[in-house]
């Protein structure tokens, strides 16, 4: 059954930019309250403050926190805050939109001696992959994932294709897709669905940090059957649409949100 998002709570990990930001705005427009976690310096905090003001202007409740979403301490601090804010309703939508990882190659390249360290590899897979599991578990244990709740993770074509500096992130995306399947099965009895959205190439701040991203963007613009790149709002729209049902029957999928880019 389709139900309104008005008055529900949406938890966004990685809320200050890119798809997390666009989803915050789209969910707020539907009347959902936004709980955002983002991590950055004072300069990025100013951008987050502007977003918070924009969200509040829609009349919803907003709670933003500048801290490392992948740390155990952050979860320990924020889950009780969420419980207090959301009350018995819990979290209707969780969006995992963390894009922070190492973009170093596995082997030394000409003119680029730096290679990824074990620590950087572990950090990348932990932030962009495993942290989904730990957030979902902590929310579940705290009774914050009610029947009908939706969990979304974001992946990309880099989960199966190879780009020079994307090795660790690709590993993280592969782990993420596996975690989505596992969580979907473990959460099915609770009536909570878990899906990954695989966006087409999108010009987010995270993409622009990838060496060679301009070339990728040119290629994707030319090849996308819609004749344009994916924008964060395309992904936000998909999250809103898929969150509008209380059914958990559609679960454990990787759903392409790419205008057909992956087909050609």
């Amino acid at each position: 059954m389709l139900t309104s998002l008005k008055g529900s709570w949406c938890l966004i990990l990685g809320a200050s930019s890119g798809m997390g930001r666009a989803t915050a705005l789209a969910m707020a427009k539907e009347g959902a309250n936004i709980f955002g976690v983002h991590f950055g310096t004072a300069a990025q905090q100013e951008e987050a403050d502007e977003l918070v003001a924009e969200l509040r202007a829609t009349g919803v409740q907003v709670s933003f926190h500048n801290c490392n979403a992948a740390s155990k301490q952050t979860r320990a601090e924020l889950v009780p805050v969420l419980k207090e804010l959301t009350g018995p309703e819990g979290v209707r939508v969780l969006l995992h939109s963390l894009a922070f990882g190492s973009l170093l190659p596995f082997l030394p390249q000409e003119g680029q001696e730096d290679v990824i360290t074990p620590r950087q590899m572990d950090m990348t897979v932990d932030v962009m992959g495993h942290s989904l599991v730990y957030w979902v578990r902590d929310l579940y244990v705290a009774g914050l994932l009610p029947r009908g709740a939706k969990v979304f993770a974001l992946t990309s074509r880099g989960d199966g294709r190879v780009m020079p500096s994307y090795g660790a992130v690709s590993a993280a995306k592969s782990a993420l897709a596996s975690h989505v399947r596992q969580l979907a099965v473990e959460l099915a009895p609770a009536g909570v669905s878990v899906n990954a959205l695989r966006a087409g190439l999108t010009l987010t701040p995270a993409l622009l940090r990838i060496p060679g991203s301009e070339g990728l963007a040119r290629y994707a613009t030319d090849s996308n059957p819609h004749g344009r790149l994916t924008v964060p709002e395309d992904v936000a729209e998909a999250v809103v649409m898929l969150s509008a049902t209380d059914s958990s029957w559609m679960t454990g999928n990787v759903i392409d949100v790419d205008g057909g880019e992956g087909l050609v």
Binding site: T41, A42, N68, F100, T117, R119, Q120, D122, M123
Partner: peptide
């Protein structure tokens, strides 16, 4: 000391708050 970029950002953000300064990424 096996510092990765996330720990480096943790240091940067902690110092900003503790010393009331503005750091660049």
């Amino acid at each position: 000391l096996d510092v990765d970029s996330l720990l480096a950002l943790e240091i940067l953000v902690t110092l900003e708050r503790k010393y009331q300064v503005k750091m660049e990424e």
